[in-house]
Nucleic acid binder design. Sequence first.
DNA 1: CCTTTGATGTTGTCACTGTCAACATCAATC
DNA 2: GATTGATGTTGACAGTGACAACATCAAAGG
Lengths: 213, 213
Amino acid sequence: MAASGVRPRRKPRDRYHHGDLRRALLDEALRTIHQDGVEALTLRTIGLALGVSRTALYRHFADKRALLSAVATEGFRMLRGRLVEVWGSGGVREFNEMGVAYVQFAIANPSHYRVMFGGFVDDGPRDEELTREGMAAFQALVDAIAALQKSADVRKDDPLQLARFIWATVHGVSMLIIDGQLSHQHAQLDDLIQFAMQRLQTGIAAGPARTRN
Amino acid sequence: MAASGVRPRRKPRDRYHHGDLRRALLDEALRTIHQDGVEALTLRTIGLALGVSRTALYRHFADKRALLSAVATEGFRMLRGRLVEVWGSGGVREFNEMGVAYVQFAIANPSHYRVMFGGFVDDGPRDEELTREGMAAFQALVDAIAALQKSADVRKDDPLQLARFIWATVHGVSMLIIDGQLSHQHAQLDDLIQFAMQRLQTGIAAGPARTRN
DNA sequence: CCTTTGATGTTGTCACTGTCAACATCAATC
DNA sequence: GATTGATGTTGACAGTGACAACATCAAAGG
């Protein structure tokens, strides 16, 4: 089943040390969150699933929040990867697809997405790596916009400001969908996403005329 | 200080019944959330603050979630009130101010806003009144858009779809600000909000030409 | 006036949570 | 081969939401 060389998820009963518990903790957290949501994530449950005691986690993370912080970090990494993948070195069309991909990521990993934003993390001083990875994901968007500005497809405002605006919109759509504030019918959701990207592009397009819609 | 006829917040020590505990519970929850955030909201704390036992709440709310649900409901009521107040029977300018007012509401009551959306509520079947009040707030936006369509200021798409799009944007801006993903400098925030509303209006404006920005 | 009764508030208790301190185990280093 | 620092465990604690059994009281009906 599993490829050779992969560490077993559970610690063998006869071994005292796990081997790569930090990684296993992260994976298990991801799994649980994806499957049962954040609120179901319990230190005891994680430990049980990994065949490890409830407090073993504290050798690898300062506390529960730190674990969630790491989860969020990984979420941003995944999101960023997906965004640059879709964008390629593309144009207006790929930009559209980027927006769609963003929302789809959120829909596909709602709990994960909520950990990334939902305020589970931001109490104390934010984790440094998390901040960095979040900014990297954001940068993917900024880069795309800058490129579209160069090709005269997007108005030449401050690209950061433009990026914040667009980010807010796709983030907003994602959140509303995730929180069930919008119809859950697939077709309607797709319509909304497409519509939003359309209006977005009209809103940020360069030149006063040219496109009719 | 308090006008006569107002029930005291705390139950007098000699009285067994509080008088209007449901209202007091709601108020206290509001207060706590506004002051210390949602995570500080504890049934025991509320009870203590009101001079009432920790479980008294269960005579008025099914459980903690139901209380938060009621809080969210009231939040939507407040938000809607503010929105229609700003809109009046206005035009493009008032529409802009509506967007600003929305975000400002979120900034002024971050924890409250998070209760309204952050997924504290939407586990079980959603509270009926909450759903209704949320839709009412949304309707305020739809109405405004419909009016702007009539005056030919906004393109004649499905007003619901337009409203969802705009809602998503202001919601997204609000969320990002609340979660500290954006700079916390007042001036910059105002700039972003204004910028977003500007781009939004360009995106949904009627007619291919007319306005240059 | 007295009794009954349903609504409202309380106490005791439970299982569960995150966290810490003290201890156990082990792998690597001198 | 002893030492030691990293890693995992056990016991304990205070705090949480929730439930069941009980207490108190106001209002309704006689």
